[in-house]
Design a protein around this nucleic acid. Structure first.
Lengths: 189, 189
DNA sequence: GTCTATAGCTTGATAGAC
DNA sequence: GTCTATCAAGCTATAGAC
């Protein structure tokens, strides 16, 4: 029987998918094993801490993604502000599949291990908030206004995602996210 | 040993608490038994369908609560509009303990039995949306505006609740919910 | 209507071969 | 690095006494 080294990136992607769809308590080792194509013992080889370890790894990846793909982008003053925001929102829309996919942060923030995950989840949201706040300030809003509106932007994303899934209508998400540029004081491109 | 008939209302309240805190997959029969003070076999006597049955019962109660406590209130034209809305929002704030408590609808909308619960969860949100929309229309907004803003009000509630819990700051919820009257075109009392 | 006791399965996790 | 085989514990659910 051949020893196949499964690509770590593929494993990460599949783990993220399962935790995002089923939540922490709904994601069994069986499901995680089937999804990744790795037997349970192989998963324990890569993640000695077990399920908790895998979810923490998924969250660490998510934090990196938000920092590199969204945070840095929004802070990149070499690029036109509307373009940056547009691209960032496009990436976020893609991440959530236009409202069809749940948010891993939300799914992992309410589970039996919530306390263990809380810090990194809060960190992810702070990256997003700071990015939005930065462009809002750039667009001429006061610090107070920029802070309020960047928070509102994240509320829109999370709230509309909850409702899109609960009411079975992705347009709720699409409409809500398309209003973010104006909310942050930026004319949509 | 005495046979004690536990009050159904207390059982319902405790079941709601456990499902709301742990979600469907995180709420074990053991937890539900401990919380209600009823042994597992007794729970099965009251809910022959088991856990699924209990969660469905919790959701049915929630639907009734929204209809009777919020929906009817918002539609009661014998009372001053600002007063009605204020009272409805007060009840919702109390339900979510000012941001400290999760939303049972959200917790049960993303689980291994999500498909089974979807219809009644959507119904709960529709009751709230229709109530908000009704007062928004009354306040003079167009049908389109009223629909958009009532949706935004629910997005604010759900989104701010997610973020309050994730970032450990209940003020996010309090600030967001206090803005709802103005959002619906009504001067806060 | 509530209980004790238990069945039967699934869970997270480990040992050890290759 | 991946596997098969297995464990002990926890799970949902049921049987039957009171």
């Amino acid at each position: 029987m051949p020893v196949i080294k499964v690509v770590p990136e593929d494993v990460d992607r599949k783990l993220t998918e399962v935790f995002t769809q089923y939540g922490y308590d709904g994601a069994s080792m069986e499901l995680l094993s089937k999804a990744t194509g790795l037997k349970k013992a192989s998963l324990y080889h890569r993640f000695p801490g077990g399920k908790k370890d895998m979810a923490a790894h998924v969250l660490k990846n998510t934090e990196t993604w938000f920092q590199e793909q969204v945070g840095s982008l929004l802070h990149d003053q070499d690029r036109e502000i509307g373009e940056r925001l547009s691209e960032a929102i496009g990436k976020i829309s893609l991440l959530f599949e236009d409202g069809a996919r749940n948010c891993s942060l939300r799914m992992l923030s309410a589970c039996s291990e919530a306390a263990y995950f809380q810090e990194i989840i809060a960190s992810c949201f702070k990256i997003l908030r700071d990015g939005f706040s930065f462009v809002a300030r750039e667009s001429g809003l006061s610090e107070r206004e920029a802070n309020e509106r960047s928070m509102q932007a994240i509320i829109n994303i999370q709230g509309s995602l909850v409702l899109s899934r609960a009411m079975g209508d992705n347009d709720i998400f699409k409409t809500s996210i398309s209003a973010i540029p104006q909310l942050l004081g930026i004319q949509k491109k």
